[in-house]
Design a protein around this nucleic acid. Structure first.
Length: 504
RNA sequence: GGUUCUGUAGCUCAGCUGGUAGAGCAAAUGACUCUUAAUCAUUGGGUCCAGGGUUCGAAUCCCUGCGGGACCA
């Protein structure tokens, strides 16, 4: 923390003492009764309804003040928005003693302070719905000055744009940037819409371990920690897939979890070390059913979030309206590179990578090579929601073999705006084959692939009890949130994005 | 990890080719009983990210480090 206080901070601290000397507690305990919100009053008040606004009580933060001498205007901001208030000296202080107005209101209160007011609604000469203040109560004194943002006719002046400030002091960002508050409330709406969709169809929301002794279910580098009492290493989960499948084995027909996952990898505009994947698993379904369900869910979610299936990101219009285009990964590669790799072996594909100037190394197996080609040359072309389907078996260790196409698995990824949003399969439920796939992963690990999967024997035991045919999916919640709120950086859809610690 | 841009008052930013800092908002003091980026007058406020170097002299040029952004592996 800062050791030296600014001039303004010192002045505000001095005001605390002056308030207390006047018998005013700057941090009072009693609740403050609220009858209306700023937005309700602004949208509801009129000549006809004015009777309902004769006794208003609301609380908020002072955002600006216009001092006219014996009468003041101020703008109060609560959770719903802002409203102008009007306060007159001779009404607040009808007697001889004008301290409450001249000293407390005018001198000891500052921008950023939280107050409660009682009064009645009215419309000013210039036509702005306002509250005529009859009494006010200091509810919280602010000691840190707020950035002085101003706004007129939708144009914002002195807007706080410094990203470091916004991310490190999100609380202040939320106070002064209404659009940031809006982004986050829409993200919550989005998640609620997903929950509603899943709950209505019989989904059961569950919680599974974040601390895992085998970090399974995905290909990624985990964070490692240590449990003292058990004296064992534990990993923060990179995925919850294997646990949700255990629950399907246990007999739940449809389970889902918003899984906060942790991956110890690079950070950029689309990666934060902790992030959320919604995973859900449904018994007796396959990946074709899952595609239909996914596009329905996303269309409904987009409408619930924004009132429209169309969203705009960085000047690009994206339609979440179902159905979405479906194309196999081999066809996608053929379309965008001209190479038909569907019949090639690892050496042939490696040669194609070379021709396409894709950097590869010896640790990469066939699956990884194909992934590199698709990621490097194809993915970016799919702007509108597109299902890429039927992946090669080598890159999908948890996926059931394709019902008719040799060497492929029943898997799809959903690409939107050139980014992977979801990944889904008909889940592999043959325990013997699953063990073989894990063993293949082990070979990749020996080859130097530090993202290969570990063998999870307990999961295999669960599969041996019999897991019904199951379709499963993981959806990147932040990425979906970015699309639906029109943000291009993951930091703008996380309240507190990971940052280097400040000031050590 | 590489390349590049960036860091000046509480906030937004200016500061040309080197001459030890400026504006608006915010703050303080005063005026004003319907203002709305309120207005008017006066005043205060700075480790120019940090540390080195070049120079008579560095916010400015150079190096290193730290923080942040963008692009790339």
């Amino acid at each position: 923390m800062q050791s030296t206080l600014s001039e303004q901070e010192i002045i505000r601290r001095e005001k605390l003492g002056e308030l207390r000397a006047l018998g005013i507690d700057p941090y009072p305990a009693p609740l403050f009764e609220i009858t209306h919100t700023a937005n309700e009053i602004k949208s509801g008040y009129s000549e006809e309804t004015k009777e309902q606004y004769k006794e208003i009580s609301l609380a908020g933060r002072i955002m600006s003040r216009r001092d006219m001498g014996k009468a003041n205007f101020a703008v109060l901001q609560d959770a719903s928005g802002t409203i102008q208030i009007y306060i007159k000296r001779d009404e607040i202080c009808p007697g001889e003693d004008k301290t409450l107005f001249d000293t407390v209101w005018k001198k000891l209160l500052d921008l950023g302070d939280i107050i409660g007011i009682k009064g009645y609604g009215f419309i000013t000469k210039t036509g702005e719905t306002s509250i005529h203040v009859e009494s006010f109560t200091l509810l919280t004194k602010a000691l840190h000055p707020l950035p002085s943002v101003k706004e007129k006719d939708g144009e914002v002046f002195n807007e706080v744009t410094d990203l470091e400030f916004k991310y490190r002091q999100r609380y202040a960002d939320l106070i002064v940037n209404p659009n940031v508050r809006d982004t986050f409330t829409r993200i919550t709406k989005m998640k609620n819409a997903i929950r509603t969709f899943l709950n209505e169809r019989g989904g059961l929301e569950v919680d599974t371990p974040v601390l895992q002794s085998i970090p399974g279910g995905a290909l990624a580098r985990p964070f490692i920690t240590h449990h003292n009492a058990l004296d064992i290493p534990l990993y923060l989960r990179i995925a919850n897939e294997l646990y949700l499948k255990r629950l399907i084995v246990g007999g739940f027909p449809w389970v889902y979890e918003f899984s906060r996952n942790f991956r110890n990898e690079g950070m950029d505009r689309t990666h934060n070390p902790e992030f959320t994947i919604l995973e859900f698993y449904v018994a007796y379904k396959d990946y074709l059913w899952m595609m239909n369900t996914t596009e329905q869910m996303l269309e409904e979610t987009a409408i619930a979030t924004n009132g429209s299936a169309i969203t705009n990101v960085d000047g690009v219009e994206i339609s979440f309206k179902a159905p979405y285009k479906r194309i196999s990964i081999y066809d996608a590669i053929k379309e965008h590179t001209g190479h038909d790799i569907s019949q090639m072996d690892e050496a042939g594909i490696r040669e194609v990578c070379k021709q396409l100037h894709i950097e590869v190394d010896a640790t990469m197996g066939k699956g990884k090579l194909i992934d590199e080609i698709f990621g490097g040359k194809c993915e970016k072309h799919y702007v509108q929601p597109t299902f890429i389907i039927d992946y090669p078996v080598e890159m999908s260790p948890l996926t059931k073999k394709h019902r008719e196409k040799e060497g492929l698995v029943e898997r799809f990824e959903l690409i939107i705006n050139g980014k992977e949003i979801a990944n889904a399969y008909s889940e592999l439920n043959d325990p013997i084959e699953q063990r073989e796939r894990f063993e293949d992963q082990l070979k990749n690990m020996e080859r130097g692939d530090d993202e290969a999967m570990f063998i999870d024997n307990d999961f295999l035991r669960a599969l041996e009890y019999g897991m019904p045919p199951t379709a499963g999916i993981g959806i990147g919640i932040e990425r979906l949130a970015m699309l639906l709120t029109g943000n291009v950086s993951i930091q703008d859809v996380l309240f507190f994005p990971q940052m280097r610690p400040e000031n050590v």
